[in-house]
Simulated scan of single mutants.
Amino acid sequence: MPLLLELAATLLDAGLPVDGVLGTLARDVGPCRGLQPVVRSLDLGLGWHRSWQTAPAALRGLGEALAFAHLTGAATADLLRAAAEQERRREARNAEKRAAELGVKLVVPLGTCALPAFICLGIVPVVMALLPALG
């Protein structure tokens, strides 16, 4: 999503209208092929929000980011770049959170493997060495 937002911002900076940006993305960017029904709906004159109901869920964030530019006609390339940066930060936070959860989830399997080895290599030889002294 951040890359698509950056690409949309660049296309807006190049002078394309929002409908042109969507058409270019739908035509030339593989993961954005799902935008073709949205582009056709907008060409037929349907409203922005109604047109985006047919979009894949993964691309709806792009629609939310471009809605302001479409509805007001304001230059929003900088807003799109800021949204892309915010999305990158959110993805980084989610990756850090998943990495922290992974550390917790790995404790049980590692303990299951390491505890028997510790018992066999650490405790059993000590007990075996102490048995003749006790008897």
Rank of each mutant, 00 (worst) to 15 (best):
M1F: 07
P2M: 03
P2H: 06
L5H: 06
L7F: 05
L7T: 12
A8R: 03
T10N: 10
D13T: 05
A14M: 05
P17W: 02
P17T: 10
V18G: 02
V18H: 00
D19S: 13
D19E: 14
G20S: 08
V21C: 04
L22W: 08
G23D: 11
T24I: 08
L25R: 01
D28F: 05
V29A: 07
P31K: 04
G34K: 10
L35V: 03
Q36A: 14
V39F: 08
S41F: 09
D43P: 01
G45P: 05
W48M: 01
W48V: 01
R50S: 11
R50C: 00
W52V: 07
Q53D: 10
A55P: 07
A57N: 09
A58C: 01
L59Y: 08
L59N: 10
L59P: 08
G63L: 03
L66N: 05
L66W: 04
F68P: 04
H70C: 02
H70L: 03
H70G: 12
L71I: 00
L71T: 04
L71P: 01
L71Q: 09
T72M: 01
G73D: 00
G73P: 03
A74P: 01
T76F: 01
T76A: 14
T76G: 13
L79N: 11
A82H: 14
A83P: 06
Q86N: 14
Q86D: 14
Q86H: 15
Q86F: 13
E87W: 14
E87S: 15
E91P: 03
A92P: 02
N94Y: 13
N94P: 00
N94H: 13
A95I: 07
K97M: 12
R98Q: 12
A99V: 06
L102Y: 14
L102R: 15
V104C: 10
K105R: 15
L106R: 11
P109R: 11
P109M: 08
P109S: 09
L110D: 01
L110C: 12
L110G: 13
G111A: 10
C113A: 14
C113M: 14
A114G: 11
L115W: 11
P116F: 07
P116S: 09
A117R: 05
A117H: 03
I119T: 11
L121T: 08
L121V: 06
G122C: 10
G122W: 11
I123H: 05
V124L: 15
V127I: 13
V127D: 00
V127L: 15
M128P: 00
A129V: 06
A129F: 10
L130R: 12
L130S: 09
L130I: 07
L130P: 03
P132N: 07
L134D: 00
G135A: 09
